[in-house]
Computed example of a mutant assay.
Amino acid sequence: MNDNIYYQALLNKDSSYEGTFIVGVKTTGIMCRPTCTARKPKRENVEFFKTTKEAMLKGYRPCKVCKPLTQAGSTPEEIKKVLEALNANPSLKYKDWDLRQQGIDPTMLRRWFLKHHGLTFQAYQRIYRINSAFKKIKNGDSITETAFSAGFESLSGFGDSFKSIFGISPKHSKDQQIVDICRLETPLGTMVACATEQGVCLLEFTDRKMLETELKSLAKQLNAHLLQGENKHFGTLRTQLQEYFRGERKEFSVPLFTPGTAFQQEVWNALKTIPYGKTRSYQQQAYSINKPTSVRAVANANGMNRLCMLIPCHRVIGTNGTLTGFGGGLWRKKWLLEHEGAIPKELF
């Protein structure tokens, strides 16, 4: 019975069930997400809902600990405004006073950046400025002009910051490469995107267990540095994702960059041929590339796909119709297939 499975997931604070259910605690009138860290209620004191709307219609109010009305891991609105300002002008240098003027608690902001980016907000700003400066130097701008336009107060300070990231001075950086990285908010949770000049090369949910490994592998494969920064492809990606989730887009046209082996390229190209609203088994996918005995290899190549939704590996299912093998979580795979009309929406 689902309720017993959900209750065990609640006890375990199992993040793989995020988006699957909301729990209502009868004794307190509070609703929580599966990963809530508050004290766990007894089994007889809870009931489960598919959405927060259903729970609220039964009179439950949102928990102040896990905040079920917000996406797990989503970027707070006040931090979004700061990031948008940095996108528009990378030379900005926010100080605590500037943040307080916007009603932002600097301590909260620092904790958020440490948790979600693994670095301080000041370091994030510095990397953003260096990323912007690097691109200007690559385009032929002078190092001196670039340093001061990026908000650095001296050439030595710019050189030290540049060297701390690239390991070399600005004048020796022409052979260096950058992969831009940013966060994107979607109805299914926060995603991280990476892009080069050629196109988007990674799109994954931030709670994917293998994300850190994927990022390191991508940097090594491209011999590049992954740095927070804006990219010419991110605007198109944001727009097309919004259209997809609104049900207005069935195919993505944002340029993609997919480094990989010849076999992986073959498998990924086959994934692109699965139409919106349709599914294919791993066996059928193997047949489609004339390798019927390579089902396991095909499945492994699917798992190496770094472009969630853009290369639709979520449309591949088990031979018996089961939903298997999706790095973003099976609940998201189910949601995407229901959204596309590939499987019927089930009653809770």
Rank of each mutant, 00 (worst) to 15 (best):
K163H: 12
S154P: 09
A301F: 04
Y276F: 10
Q102H: 11
L271C: 12
H339E: 05
S149K: 13
R280P: 08
I22K: 00
G328S: 10
R306H: 15
E214Q: 14
K334F: 05
Q284P: 04
E340W: 02
Y94P: 05
A88M: 08
Y94I: 06
L11P: 02
Q242T: 07
D141L: 13
T37D: 14
I30E: 07
F121R: 02
G29K: 10
S16T: 15
G235R: 14
P312Y: 01
N139Q: 15
F245Y: 13
K216V: 07
Q283E: 11
R249L: 15
T258Q: 01
F21R: 02
K58S: 08
P62Y: 04
R110W: 00
F134M: 03
G19I: 02
N223V: 03
F166Y: 04
Q242A: 13
T20N: 03
N231I: 02
A224V: 07
E248I: 08
E18I: 15
A342G: 12
F113S: 10
T279Q: 01
I143D: 06
E230S: 11
T146K: 00
I168R: 06
G247H: 10
R111D: 11
F158P: 05
M309P: 05
K232L: 14
F252P: 06
A286F: 02
K272M: 08
Q285C: 12
F263A: 09
Q125P: 04
P255E: 12
I30F: 01
L86F: 02
N223K: 15
S217T: 11
P76H: 12
Y276M: 02
R280C: 14
T196N: 00
V200G: 10
Q101F: 06
L222G: 10
L307E: 02
G247Q: 13
M309S: 12
A72S: 08
N320V: 00
C194F: 11
P62D: 08
M108Y: 13
Q264W: 10
Y287R: 10
C66L: 01
H116K: 09
T70S: 11
G328T: 06
L114H: 12
N2D: 02
Y6Q: 08
T37V: 13
L11F: 05
L347E: 15
K334A: 09
C308G: 12
V192E: 15
K163L: 10
T120W: 01
R306W: 09
G167W: 04
K136F: 01
T37W: 08
R33H: 01
